[in-house]
Design a binder for these strands. Structure first.
Lengths: 261, 261
DNA sequence: CGCCACTTTGAATTAGCTCAAATTCCGTGG
DNA sequence: CCACGGAATTTGAGCTAATTCAAAGTGGCG
């Protein structure tokens, strides 16, 4: 559980238990706290609302853009992408959801969902009728706190995505993307030194505002620089020996030449 | 300055009164309804919370990144920009706020604000302590609805920004930006055929993920195509004879050659 | 009037895109 | 088991939209 530091001394080791490989250098308990926070939130929802659970498989659409809004979803397992399709035919992955994330907030204001929520893997969502949630909040203020916290976190997260898009070159955006994915796994209580990407290069590129070729080149570069490693077979699985290395890669992208003088 | 234009058959024509020239083709009362909605919301807040008002002038910082979160702000007049500064020194305008918009949602989850809220003009914000708001919501569910609606709308809006960034070329992003600004003025109940930009080209470029030169070129192009017109003096004021023209300009950007076959 | 910040425009440069070809992976059926 | 085919990926090469660099031009204001 305690990573053996940056320098990889770790043998591939069986994936069995031993989970929760984290590596935030600043606060090595941060991931643990975060994952507990997710677990606590889910527990609260389960206790107070006993939400209906729904199993999903890759490709399942939990709700589609334009459908009447009535229920929020909380992701308990698996991964989702939110896909937006504009009237003029532009298609865009606008966000990726992990365990503990809520789906459907955008529906509250308009009365209809504005995206498709598509499962990228086998997983489970909890269905929470918005009206029932509000009713339950009356008896249990903690529930309201949890709701607001989730909405607020999404707002903060969306902002970070926007920052990335606006201020980072393509290579760095890919690195940031992997870093966030690893972070999210850690928050979920899963091992984060190993990512099974559930997206094609084309989808990643769409999400990050670049072409699939650029994604591929960026990943190749990250591998060349030893920041990531591809699993022996299948280039969808990515090993991240040290999350910190991803962050410093981003930094390096920002200071292209200035280092010299 | 006025290049004799490619075709130019339209005479300058007086722009005198005739305010509120809107041009949503689908529903010509949409703007009116939207502005009533903003007014109703503000009325509700005023009646139930009697929030403290604060006058601001251009450059005033209502709250800064890192400050302890305690209160939300509702913009009653003026314009704000939200500015994010990352640890590594990247600075980014992450959103623009208009009348009826709320400021500070990002603070709920982290307990601190994550952006600077900077006034771009003389205006007024209403201060709403978050704890008091929650207390008031207990007696008045409508208040809670308004809060959730505002958070949800921001989530939806942030998504649209991201779509723009990812899927539109620079020219179109500038057009979209102006269109949204005009829309927001209409929602505020202000005339929307005329925009006084409170931002430099550099700020606009930062917000839209491009350089100031690109913004300038895009605006020049829009003027050349008669989609906008600059006021006689000062290139900060922009006339929009027809908002629809902005939208169709965006469309044109998306179909570069395909029109032929 | 003259400074200064902002804007516009042009010319050269480049990051990322498009197009194209080769390679790998994986499921399917003989 | 292997051969086959389609989809995803990688990599190269040229092209283009947008950036960078540079030089005027414009407006606001003490």
């Amino acid at each position: 559980m305690l990573t053996t530091a940056p320098v990889s001394s770790r043998p591939p080791g069986p994936v069995i238990a031993s989970c929760l490989a984290n590596s935030t250098p600043v606060d090595e308990h941060a991931d643990l706290r975060a994952s507990r926070h997710v677990a606590d939130t889910l527990k609260l929802l389960q206790d107070r609302l006993a939400p209906r659970r729904r199993l999903v498989h890759a490709g399942d659409v939990v709700y589609g853009a334009g459908e009447r809004f009535s229920t929020l979803y909380v992701l308990n397992a698996g991964f989702f992408k939110m896909v937006n399709l504009t009237a003029d035919g532009r298609e865009q992955v606008v966000s990726i959801k992990f365990r503990g994330d809520w789906l459907g907030f955008d529906g509250i204001a308009r009365g209809t969902y504005s995206c498709d929520a598509v499962a990228m893997d086998t997983g489970e969502v909890w269905m929470i009728r918005y009206d029932e949630l509000l009713a339950a909040c009356r008896d249990c203020p903690a529930l309201l706190d949890v709701l607001h916290e989730a909405m607020s976190r999404q707002i903060g997260r969306d902002r970070e995505s926007l920052m990335s898009l606006c201020t980072l070159p393509a290579d760095a955006r890919v690195a940031e993307f992997l870093r966030y994915w690893a972070d999210s796994l850690a928050r979920s209580g899963l091992r984060s030194d190993q990512i099974m990407l559930r997206m094609t290069r084309a989808e990643i590129g769409n999400y990050l505002g670049m072409t699939l070729e650029t994604v591929s080149r960026a990943l190749s570069k990250l591998a060349r620089d030893q920041v990531i490693r591809f699993a022996e077979k299948g280039r969808r699985e990515i090993r991240i020996p040290d999350v910190g290395a991803l962050s410093s890669f981003v930094q390096r992208c920002l200071v292209p030449v200035t280092t010299l003088q």
